[in-house]
Amino acid sequence: MATNTVKHRDIKDQPGFGMMAVICLFVLYAPILILMIWSFNSGNLVTHWEGVSLQWYGVALQNEEFHNAAKNTLIISITATIVSTTLATMAAIGMTRVKAWRGMGTSFMVINLPLMVPEIITAVATLSFFALLAGKLGLNFGIGNIIIAHTVFCIPFAYMPIRARLEDMDLTLENAAADLYATPWNAFKRVTFPLMIPGILSGLALAFIVSFDDFTITQLIAGPGQTTLPLYIWNQIRRPMTPEINAISTILLLVSILFVSVSFLIARRRK
C-alpha cells in the first residue's frame, strides 16, 4: 500500500517552485550579507579586501557626528514610539470594545491614511505644513517637527497588531469579569489590559523600527543639526566611501532584525 504514496510526489508540489523560493531568499539576503561582510574589511577602500578587522566599528563608534546622529535618532524614535503606541492602543479599544458608532469607518480610514499615501507626498505635505506654521504663526518645534511627523506615520503600524490582538481575544473573560461585578475600569486593568500586552509590545516594536529607519520624511523636514542615522548614512554616501559606512549600515540592520524578530516571536507565542 505504501508504495503508492512513496512513488507519487505530494499533490501540493509544483515543479520548480521550491527552487524559486530559494532564489528569492538568495536575492533578498545576498546583498545584505555582502554589505555586512565588507564592514569587517581592514583596508580603507570598499573595493579591496585586505583582511578581517573590527577597526571600522571603532572608527564609526568614536565619530562625534555618529554620536549626535544616534542621539537624535533615539530621542525621535523613542518619543514617537511611545506617543504613537499610546494613541494607537486607545484607538484600538475605542474601535473594538464599543458598539458600532457613526464615523467609525471614517476614523478607521483616517488612522490608516498614512499607509495609503506615498511617503514622498506625506513628506512634502508635512514640509509645507511646518513651513506655514513657522512662517505665519512663528511656530517651530525644532526636532519636535520630526517627532510629530514620525508619530503620524507610526500610529497605523502600532495600531494593526494591537487591534488584531483585541479582535482575537476571547470575550468570555471580559464578560466574566463584568458578571462578577468588576467595575469597567477594574475589568480593563485586571483582564483586558494584561491580555493586550503582547499586541502592545508588537506595536511598540513595529513603531520603533518605522521611526528608527525612516529616511524620506526625515530628509525633507530635518533642519540643520537634526541629522538622524539614516541621514548620516546618506551624507556619507556622497563622500569617498570607506568601510565605516558598511559598519554603520550593519548596526542599523541588526537593530531592525532584532526588533522584527522580537515582535515576530511575541506574535507567535500568543497562538
Partner: peptide
C-alpha cells in the same frame, strides 16, 4: 453598556492627531 458607548472617545486623540498633522498638510498642499 454605557462603557461600551463611552469607549468610542478613546479613538479621538489618534484621529485628531492624524487629522491635524496628516490630513491638514495634504489639504494645504
Amino acid at each position: 453598556g454605557q462603557q461600551m458607548t463611552r469607549n468610542r472617545w478613546l479613538s479621538l486623540p489618534a484621529v485628531l492627531f492624524i487629522t491635524l498633522f496628516g490630513v491638514c498638510p495634504l489639504i494645504l498642499m
